[in-house]
Design a protein around this nucleic acid. Structure first.
Lengths: 226, 226, 226, 226
DNA sequence: TATGAATGAGGTTTCATTCAT
DNA sequence: CATGAATGAAACCTCATTCAT
């Protein structure tokens, strides 16, 4: 289906064959992510993954002993990479909590939400019940840290008197939910011809930040808001 | 495709066998919904569905000519039932738009979000790309009306001076997203032992309403802005 | 598929229900013969036979305990009926053997070849290898008597000096083959749109008789040939 | 649909595995022909065909995408091979039309009638009504040319004064019918223990030729007959 | 390493047969 | 007798996985 073309522009020091070989696992994982997101895990055939990665069926099994292991590798490979950066941003930030909140959400979108890696969200949502350990791993390694991160931003805002007292866990959910929802929509309905979300994701984040900031602001004194 | 529904007024004159026959389609659809949500469409075996409905494999095919038709029936049967009621609530309401918004969201949760029917959301998200016509149908019959409904509530609030001027479509998304997210979470991660959402859905809706209402309110201090 | 209409013109002395009941076996056999000839035994569903006979699936099994038994009944019912008449014709004939041969072949065509019963030939040819006992039965009850009959006509012709000495069994085959072939063609290729035999069966029999009679005649002038 | 035939000249350079691959299609077609002729198309299981060809069920589907495609390949592969040779024989012949007729019929028997390929006749007769396109194809590619061939022989005989004026299409049918009948008999009744044709095919052809030649001869002395 | 031919367990679907009504 | 809902064995076909080359 996909012609097995070799990338012609990447010959440096190592021979092409070797380069391909080293790149194989990632190429396979990328192909698998795409297909698993598109069609679902069970409905994707191992041979399709191999074909999209430009290798034969047998080669796939040289790298991953089973289709299920491939799925696990896809998921593990695509999670737990962006959190650390977020922590850095938060730690380095010196302005208002409101600005920081906006920054963090926009960066999340830029670095994850609008990349193909966001497909992992739909994939996990679809498949966790069949792979509960991965679900627990994901909850512990990704969801918890992300919530802690956003929670710390909120906490800082409350402490600094920018935000009113808030049920932090719930507000964190409310912050993430629209973004996760957009991501999931993009990889499901959004891929259907004739179904449009009707709103631009970046704008939506702006509106989200706008409303939530007014919503969580220490109310009477909300002047100065943007 | 979808077998004709049983007339509701002949329950006590027909023999028992006939009654089973009338009940079968719904029993099968319920079983199928559960399993498709749990395991995914492709990973659910037709025989499992039949077994959960208490019939044999062959009987399933007596009512639905293929597994794919069964999925279509599951989806069509479970959507487009709740919209009309929402319209009635909105039309009948006489109080403030803020109260109405709270009412509509809570009713949505009570009548749909916390029932098994909410699994349809996860199911559709997982399967639309394999069944795009159903996606378009769902978008036209469910999403559009629901957005129109919430949009009208917002519009009323703006006109009555309760809410500040708003980009209605985006705010509608922001209103629905957390609820849909909860629903999806419930049917995916939420079903994994050891992974908890950490927040109570009803409370979350309260917080959501609280924040959004303050967030979209024509804030006392910001009068004159528009 | 076939509406279960009752023949309205056959009420005489017995009530309609009873008449139907008595006629059932034959109606079922007729329907089965048609379908088995059309589609083959294995490819015909029991329910189709029942439907074409205007009864339900269950009723078929009241009369015939299995589909295979139905096939056997179809075959047994449709063979061994025409031979006796042929014997009578031969016995009663007083003219030349040539005339008699022509008469017998035409009668065979009129009474069997051009009726739906001739489908039995195609059916047997297709299915004997799966039902060898029926094959043996057919050979003993139908083929043998028929060959004996034709053989006796030839024998009479030889004895009367009308025909030259002949290898009777072979000539019998040569007499029957074209007629059987026409019959089989009619029920196979002949039923395909766009495939025509190109010759009229009755004419073919005439030509057959014409050639064979000259061919087997004690031809005074053909000496020296071969 | 039909896999490409193996080039005949690469037999000794390719590895053994490859050789099997090249041989597979023909082995499968041979096995399928045998079984379809024996038991009928519908009653033959795909797995049986595979087993008789010495491969597994899956391998069969590697070469033919469905059982029906296998049937089509069986038929297409086994027809349209013998006609050309007949044309050559007729063109090359220089003796009498009577000799030529005898030669053509004997060759037909030798090259087709007594080989397993003759089973295709029974198979087609049994299945054409379920596969009418193949029926039309067979009629156009096999039956028509064969009739044209025999017709040309008769025509030559008439022109040379060997044969009397004849209704050529009918006589062609009369020539072929006994041979086709023998072939069909061989693959149906002939395979039943205890049912014998009672005549030797080659002899039958001799008798057929004998009778027909006298029957169609421009017989000087047969005047007065009917 | 890489390939792709081969396998066979397992899934979907059909349909002969049964049996409660 | 007649019905047709229900069954489950068995057929077709797919595809994850293996392995000789």
């Amino acid at each position: 289906m996909v012609p097995p073309q070799a990338p012609e522009n990447v010959r440096d020091t190592v021979p092409a064959r070797q380069r391909r070989k080293e790149a194989r696992p990632q190429e396979l994982l990328d192909a698998a992510l795409e297909l698993f997101v598109e069609k679902g895990f069970a409905a994707t055939r191992a041979e399709e993954v191999a074909a999209r990665a430009g290798v034969s069926k047998g080669t796939l099994y040289l790298y991953y002993p089973s289709k299920e292991d491939l799925l696990k590798a896809v998921i593990l490979r695509n999670i737990s990479h962006e959190i650390a950066e977020g922590v850095g941003i938060v730690a380095a930030h010196e302005g208002s909590a409101a600005e920081l909140l906006q920054l963090v959400l926009h960066e999340w979108w830029r670095r994850f939400g609008e990349t193909p890696a966001s497909g992992i969200c739909k994939l996990m949502m679809s498949e966790v019940r069949n792979f509960p350990d991965i679900g627990r791993f994901f909850a512990a390694e990704v969801i918890e840290p992300m919530h802690a991160l956003l929670g710390s931003v909120l906490q800082r805002g409350i402490e600094r008197g920018e935000f009113r007292p808030l049920p932090i866990p719930q507000v964190v959910q409310l912050l993430m939910a629209p973004m996760l929802f957009i991501v999931m929509h993009k990889h499901s309905f959004g891929a259907c011809e004739g179904v449009e979300l009707g709103v631009d994701p970046t704008r939506l984040i702006d509106t989200q930040v706008d409303i939530v900031l007014q919503g969580i602001a220490l109310a009477p004194a909300t002047k100065g808001r943007r």
